[in-house]
Amino acid sequence: MPAQSAPAATAATESDEDNLLPRLRVAGLSPQVLAVPAPPLPTMPAPFDLRLADPDADAELVSEWMSHDLLIHTWNSAWPAERWRRYIRAQLDSDFSRPLMLSYEGTTVGYLELYRASRDTISTFYAADPWDLGLHAAVVVRSAMPASGVADGLRGLVEGAFRAEARCRRVMFEPDHRNTPARLVCERAGCQQLGMHHMPTRKIALYALPRDPNDAPPAYQSLEASAPAG
């Protein structure tokens, strides 16, 4: 079957500064997608723990983390704490995304976002199901965990998401194409690679981790597939 062309994403009308959720699609979505509730809060096996981020208590720490060299290039979110405060609050006020703080044995080690992939820009790159979840993960304090900590945490979080959301068929990941460690974690976890795609500010490698092999989604045409030979 030939690769399909992706539908065009809805253009944002606000500036980046004014639109705190620029990836949230608000037009051209089916009633089924719009009816799906906010992502659940998964439970994780000890010694991991997960909680909702607090705009007032966590913004300074997340802002500091996002100024680290690797995250500057892979998250493009080196914002002052005040903007992080507003952004975390905007997520909590929406039914689109949930900002989360990850801890290991009581030490806060990372910032995560669990979001509705079917309402995100990435839904223009593959055949999204209304109940799909997407995950952004920045695990920063790796020294507090064993070598397998990131992979164990990813597996525990995905399993928790599937438990919490019975109708979710897959969890989506879209690391920056240059983020080799994150891509390796996805591939070792058994994710399906859905090609390279352009976001407004970066190029991503799109992955899907299905609940069952039959839940793996078809992808639209990737950058590699559309590139001329030679």
Rank of each mutant, 00 (worst) to 15 (best):
Y87F: 11
A27P: 09
W131E: 15
L34H: 04
T121K: 05
G106I: 03
I72M: 15
A46Q: 09
P228S: 03
R188I: 07
P217R: 00
P45T: 05
V140T: 07
A90C: 02
W84Q: 10
D129T: 11
E113R: 11
D176M: 01
A6I: 14
K203T: 15
Q193L: 13
T10R: 06
P217E: 10
S15D: 10
L100P: 09
C191S: 11
L135A: 07
S226I: 05
P200W: 03
D215K: 10
D152I: 02
Q4V: 13
F48C: 00
S143P: 06
A138I: 03
A90T: 08
S15P: 04
A138T: 07
A161I: 00
K203C: 14
L135I: 05
Q193N: 12
R98S: 04
E64Y: 12
Y104S: 04
E60W: 02
S97C: 03
P146G: 09
L114P: 00
E17S: 11
D95W: 14
P31I: 00
C168R: 09
E14A: 15
V141C: 04
D95S: 12
V185D: 11
V26G: 04
M172H: 01
H198M: 06
R86Y: 06
L100D: 01
A137N: 04
D16K: 13
S94D: 11
R142Y: 02
R85D: 05
R119F: 01
V33R: 13
L70W: 12
D152N: 02
T107N: 06
A9C: 11
V139M: 02
A137G: 00
L157C: 02
Q193D: 13
A164W: 07
L133W: 13
S63C: 12
S103A: 09
E159H: 14
R51N: 10
P213W: 11
D152K: 02
A144R: 01
T121C: 07
F96T: 01
V140H: 01
E105W: 00
A57N: 08
A127K: 00
P45S: 05
L71I: 01
S77H: 13
T10F: 08
H136Y: 12
V140Q: 10
V36P: 02
T108S: 14
L194N: 10
Y220C: 03
L194V: 06
P146M: 07
P7S: 10
V140S: 03
E14T: 14
A11G: 13
H197N: 08
E14I: 11
G110K: 00
S15G: 13
A208R: 14
Q221F: 02
A59V: 02
G106P: 05
R211L: 12
L21W: 10
E17Q: 13
N76H: 12
A151G: 04
P42Q: 05
S5A: 08
T108N: 12
K203M: 13
P2S: 07
G230I: 09
S30I: 11
P130S: 04
R83W: 08
E159S: 10
F173A: 10
A216I: 10
A3I: 06
S67R: 15
